[in-house]
């Protein structure tokens, strides 16, 4: 008696864990996706920004106090870095193709990751959750860290905010129009450079915020930038480049695959991830929500 219920309860916790990870992943993936959709730039330095966000939490809120300060600092840092990178990429965007951008952003990721390594060394850091939510709550008879529930809520709110901003506001309409036809928008008298730099900055800031939010869940350490970048790339490809809905669905999917995979078949977790991506791409070559025109 109760065997099945226990199993369901155990998986409920796993599903919640996957949800929290998936939403952190969304914050990273959505910027990557928008920056690609808008500027045709595959930003390989995106993971390094997440890493810096994580170290902001390590530096400013190691015990959980000052968590909001860390969030604010990371957001500002992300805005500045994103704006800077947009300016750096602009002269070579479009004209010279993806290879130069790959080299440029790869170089930037080396620089950022190495600066982080100089300041924080190669230690493993796990900053604590803010004291107000450091306890655990009972979910379906299982103890579950309250902080992860907070991450889920904050993640959902941010996802909704990004979605509404993009789909339901004037600014969002401008950005979508710029994605569709930059030349036409420019000819209507809009300064598209501002739009491009703005999206790059906001997308990068979201990744930095994701770094702070994710820090108490993941361990902040050198090399996590590469891991996170790969996960975000997979997410974006599964969801479809340039699509916010796609980034959300892809991130939630990857979060579940990761959490369930680690719980059920730890040795094959990586295969599940890349297998899921290969399967999606074979059925829908442009991802779940991508337009085929991009893949052509």
């Amino acid at each position: 008696m109760g065997g099945l219920e226990d199993l369901v309860d155990a998986y409920a916790v796993t599903v919640l864990n996957g949800l929290a990870r998936g939403l952190v992943l969304f914050l990273i993936a959505v910027g990557l996706s928008l920056i690609f959709g808008l500027m045709d730039v595959l930003n390989l330095a995106h993971g390094a920004v997440f890493l810096l966000g994580g170290y902001a939490a390590v530096q400013l809120a190691p015990t959980g106090d000052g968590f909001l300060v860390a969030l604010a600092v990371a957001a500002v840092l992300g805005l500045l870095l994103g704006g800077g990178m947009a300016a750096a990429v602009r002269p070579i965007a479009g004209r010279r193709g993806h290879l130069d951008q790959a080299l440029l952003t790869l170089g930037a990721s080396y620089v950022l990751a190495e600066i982080a390594a100089i300041v924080w060394g190669d230690g493993y850091y796990s900053p604590l959750a803010p004291p107000a939510v450091a306890s655990s709550v009972t979910v379906l008879g299982q103890a579950f860290p309250a902080y992860r529930l907070v991450v889920i809520v904050v993640g959902l709110v941010l996802a909704l905010a990004v979605y509404l901003l993009f789909e339901r506001t004037q600014i969002g309409a401008l950005v979508r129009a710029t994605v569709a036809d930059r030349g036409m928008v420019a000819s209507l008298g809009v300064n598209t450079t501002v739009v491009l730099v703005g999206v790059f900055a906001v997308g990068t800031a979201l990744a930095a915020v994701g770094g702070v939010l994710g820090a108490p869940i993941l361990t902040v350490r050198p090399g996590i930038d590469r891991q996170v970048l790969l996960l975000a790339l997979i997410t974006v490809v599964i969801g479809g480049l340039g699509s916010i809905r796609g980034a959300l669905i892809g991130a939630l999917l990857i979060g579940q695959v990761e959490a369930l995979g680690v719980a059920l078949l730890p040795q094959f977790a990586a295969f599940l991830l890349f297998g899921a991506m290969a399967a999606v791409l074979l059925v829908r070559p442009a991802g779940l929500f991508g337009s085929l025109a991009e893949a052509r």
Binding site: I234, V237, A270, F274, G275, A278, L281, L282, A295
Partner: peptide
Amino acid sequence: RARGVYFLMLTLAFGQLAFSL
């Protein structure tokens, strides 16, 4: 079967699969 960035991503996935294996 894939093109552009999607080709890049698929090849990346295959490389990482070999790494995991």
